[in-house]
Amino acid sequence: MRTTPSLRIAAILWGAAGFAGLWALWELAAFGVANDAVLPGPRVVLWQFERHAGGDRGLEFLGVEHSSYGINLAWTVGTAGLGWLIGSALGVAAGLGAARRQWLRDVTEPVLFVFGAVPVLVVAPLLLVWLGAGPVGKLTLVTFYCFVVVAVVAQSAALNLPPAVEEYAATLGLDAAARFRAVVLPAALPAIVAVLRLALATGISLQAGAELLGPRVGMGRLISLRAQQGNVGEVLSLSITLGLVAVLLDTAVRAAVAPALRWQG
């Protein structure tokens, strides 16, 4: 489907209207509940953000060394991002390789079969015991998660290439390596980009989720402490901030790969 500029502007405007609607609904719901401890309105959450983003002495009494959003965000997103980079790179290589070489498929299949379906979070406790509450365990978790989802999608994308396209390239004289480079890789790219974006968002979520189980730093740690204090507004403020950073990163990834996907229209 072709999108004209006026349609795109309309889409943006309606998107904005959607957010305005969400805000209004939220305000209305909070007004109805009339208890900031249960459901604070968006303005209360914003006020929480302004008050605590720079740090909170109260948390420092609870043994949190760095309580400002910035450091914890950098920690969570940084660890998740590193895991995403390593895991995705390995996943693309393994997935595409497994689509082309039977022995590699045989080796990767058991892992991809199980963890393609079972949430990777299930190994989080084991990693905590083995690697401790430090960053290495969570880095391993996110890396492993990204590896699995990216490999599964890259493999099926390479296998879904219509055989005629590769046969056509072969009759033009392209050998297996040239076909991989000129046909398989570009054909699989849209699906790979989509799963890279999914893996980044879910990787951050997984990292923060694993941080609930008790490290010293990270947004998940702050969320868990605020939840123990019963501070719904602050939990929402932390979650939404992390979500917005994820959206920003997603937008950056999308913009970076846009030229390579223009052929799709």
Binding site: P162, E167, A187, Q264
Partner: peptide, 10 residues
Amino acid sequence: FQQDAIPGWL
């Protein structure tokens, strides 16, 4: 080929 076989990304 009978089908569309030319790569769409070129």
